[in-house]
Amino acid sequence: MKKLLPLLILLTLTFPSFAQYEYLAVTGALAGVNALKGHPQKPDEYVTQATYQGRTFPQKRSPLYKLPSKGRDQISALEQLLASRYVALQADAASPILSTEQEAAFTAAFSQLTTTRPNWSVAAYTDELAFYRTEENRRSYARAKLASEQAYQRQQRERTRRDSVERLALRRAALIDSTRRAVLAQVRAVADSVAQVQADAVAAAATPEATTASRAYTAVAPHAPVAHKPAVKKVVVKVKRSTGPTVYYCASGNTVKYHASSGCRGLARCGASIEPISLREAQASMEPCKWCY
């Protein structure tokens, strides 16, 4: 192109009518060069200002039908990543915005866009991402501070609980010690009282008046009554010699039974003496005992 320019100037000076053709040729050549290189985009095209908590930052969202065919997918992917971070920014004031994986995704998207479409303006994208990074740093600091405060509060609660347990243990130990001391004092007082009573008794017994009074009391003291046992009635069994078998009967005067033995149950209630008699004589006036016969 630089070699053709002097030739075109020479032809223009030589043939004035050739100037019109020269203008058309130069314009067409420049248009062809621009078409080959790609028309550079204006930096502020499709850029708006977004606001968050009183702070503003640029946002670039290109209409899909305005995007060039070359680099359209890369531009759309980068803007979608930024749009997702803007949604996360507005959703919560403390949650993370940029993770390590998302930072890697942004790096890859920027690299692909600058490689595919180097003349596309990315200044607004860079500023928006920088705002998100600043906000993420602020939130990370706030989360770390909150976690530190919560850990400190947990430590304080644990220390308070431990101190209360220790104080309770000390109070219990003091109560047990005071109770033990009180019991020992009572036991000691009782022992002292017993020892004093014994000492007084020994001292009183050692005096002559106490000895005389003790002897006088022993002399005049009545004897304890003696309990007499009731007399046991003795039953005398008289044994007479007789011929033939001998039986026994109660000599009460009205007996009607004779018995084979003096230990018969029928004689247990006999109030008189138990007399022996021959069986022949007994059969003449009495009947046999049902227990014996």
Rank of each mutant, 00 (worst) to 15 (best):
S76A: 15
L67N: 02
Q74R: 08
Y23N: 13
R61L: 06
A50T: 00
L67I: 08
Q59H: 02
T48I: 02
I75H: 01
G71V: 09
Q59T: 05
Q49D: 12
A31N: 09
L8S: 06
G38M: 07
D73Q: 13
S76L: 12
G28M: 11
L11C: 10
D44W: 00
K37Y: 14
I75K: 01
F18R: 04
R55S: 04
K37Q: 14
I75C: 03
V26L: 15
P43Y: 01
S69M: 11
F18Y: 15
R55V: 08
Q49G: 00
R61C: 04
N34R: 14
T14Q: 11
V33S: 02
P40C: 06
Y21K: 04
I75S: 01
D73A: 14
E22A: 15
G28E: 07
G32E: 09
D73S: 08
A29V: 12
R61S: 08
F18N: 02
S17H: 13
V47C: 05
N34F: 02
T12V: 15
R61Q: 10
G38C: 09
F15G: 00
L67R: 13
S17N: 11
G54S: 10
K42I: 02
T12R: 09
K60H: 09
I9K: 13
H39Q: 10
A35I: 06
A29R: 02
N34I: 06
Y46I: 00
A31S: 13
N34V: 05
K66D: 11
Q49A: 02
L10N: 03
P68V: 04
G54D: 05
A19E: 15
S62Y: 09
L36E: 05
H39C: 03
K66N: 06
L64E: 13
F57M: 02
G54E: 09
L10S: 11
Y46H: 15
I75W: 01
S76T: 10
P43S: 00
T51M: 00
F18I: 09
P58L: 08
Q20L: 10
E45H: 08
